[in-house]
Design a protein around this nucleic acid. Sequence first.
DNA 1: AATATTCCCGTTTTT
DNA 2: CGGGAATATT
Length: 722
Amino acid sequence: MPTLEAQLREQLLADLTEPQREAVTCTDGPLLVLAGAGSGKTRVITRRAAYLAGTVATPAQVLAITFTNKAAREMRERIDALRLAGGLPVATFHAWCARTLRIHHERAGVPREFTILDTDDRRKVIKDATLAAELSPTNFPPARVENLISQAKNALRLPDRYEQQAVDWEQRAVARIYAAYEKLLRRMACLDFDDLLLRLALLLAEDAELRDRLEEQHRYLLIDEYQDTNAAQYQIARLLTQQRRNLCATGDPDQSIYGWRGADIRNILSFEHDYPEARVVRLEQNYRSTQRILAVADALISGNVRRKQKRLWTENPAGAAVRVVECETYADEAELVAREIGQAKTAGTRLDDVAVLYRVNALSRALEEALLRAGIPYQIARGVEFYNRKEIKDVLAYLRALVNPADEVSLLRAINVPPRGIGETTLERLVGHARAAGRTVLEVIQADDLQAVGRVAARVREFGVLWAQLRPLLEGPPFAALGAVLRESGLRAYYGEENDPDEGRRRNLDELLNAAREYELQQPEATVLDWLEHTALIGDVDAVREGTGTVTLMTLHAAKGLEFPVVFIIGLEDGLLPFRRENDQPADDEEERRLCFVGMTRAREVLTLTRARRRMLRGKTEYTTRSEFLEEVRRAGVEWISTETTSPSRSRHPDAGALPEDAEEWAVGTLVRHPRYGLGRIEEIARGARRTHVRVLFESGHEQAWVLEFADLTRVDFHEVD
DNA sequence: AATATTCCCGTTTTT
DNA sequence: CGGGAATATT
């Protein structure tokens, strides 16, 4: 009869290569797995987790940490599929930190019922903090301040030290805003994303007892994508492995793409220095891509100077040539991609197997239109759009305000949706009273002496009653609470016919209800608070599903960790990929190169890189310059295609060469169409330095003057009229 | 107070 | 071009 360990070996190791096996089986002590793109890293890490759980530890004693929810879900599924390590915790850094902070809230000095600020609210609070610091949000744009504070937190720098280290006037100002911001967060009993890491890192640093307890609980720590750790995460990893030193870090320096949010590639590069006794396993055989794709990707990444040399190789077939297609305009580019996908589909490719990747979300629009026209279904992974929708934020604000009444942003949002006639002035008074009396806004709302607030006191009082009525919902599960809030608050009624004629908002709310129910099925014991935390930490990117029969559109960042037989990367233009901002500090082109490398190595069989010679971004069409990345792969055996001018208006006119510039297409006598007024003719036109003014006479006799750039006018060509 | 309108701004990537 | 904020309107 075979021993358990022999069975495990058979099941977990049989189909692994030698280095993969080593990574799975060397159980104790620090281990660094340098896993090139497509080298079977996820497979190794899941096997390792299961192996640990079956030999030297129980499943609960192994903790696997990822960066994205997507990665966590995939790992969870694959570990479950092995059926050897049920109950093995898999979580993102942020989710695990949130949970741990909640459990040990007293030691951590955070409120037990803290809520997590979403990106929008955080910006709002930062703006308030700027005002509280007696500075102007105009001079200190919230987005910029937010970024600086985020960087500071990720670097474990608190306001005091930030101020000490400030070297210029901006930093000194930001130090004040930062301090004010922290004060506001404390008053609101809120944490932001970065706090989750920061607070836990600080807690672990000062609380040796807790540290030991946690390490005892999680004897084996696995951290995926270690190249993306920032200072806080690095600190947490180190502090959790001080005694046993059982840290297994996996990653690939060539895929480090999160420097902009504080990730420090040196964390992985100096692993061997941090853990001198570490074992290092290199996975360099690629099982994913064709030789040609790999050759192109390698040619690109070789352009990075600050880089550990690495050879990625494959036994896969040579495959089709990687193509570079230069198009005339962004519309041509989108059409080309749509056409190619259509052809591939006809030739038998499943749409699930196709992905279109781009550097910035804005590039998806033209693609969407082209795919729509071509009748090709697609799904998009985009930011946090769903949870940013008004109706979603509205109802979540209620739940947040119920859980954590100190969360004023949520409370003040909820108080007037649906509109209850409680306006800005009233809110200001409420806040004013609360501050003056040293009470919370909710206490003021529920106090008896409301008349000071003015005529709308009755309405405010009603809301206070509603709050108290809804509050007991927190005892129950999230789905029921959500439904009740929608009903009792009047939100559901509000988003009826007249406020939501096309049912979009109602559908979104239904989708949210579904999400809550689904979550409840997964986590039967979960409270409303748990669910709120979940929604705060999950994004739309995670909604991308397989097997939908659709093409997938996403950013290069979102594509990490995925693979597709057919991949398009669009917009290979200077300034776009590599991305650069005009008055930006020294841009990190090496990170951009890695990002492009990540995109290329998502492709299994067919890779196409495109670029448009003219691109419209932020409303202006501009000539572009070819990306240096294209030059760099030029001699790696790509097939270069340059499409000729095929813009429809030109091909239809034989004398296309004489076609005037756009600006001259508007003149007195030009026929135009307006969505409201219909057909008309330009009577007068006046060109200023920046603006062009026009006066238009419509068929109806109506006359109207506009600034041309802002008028919703389209030119009507003669051949379209007859 | 709510809604309609204008205008002004910026502008990456994500937990 | 598109969203958010300031501004005008009812």
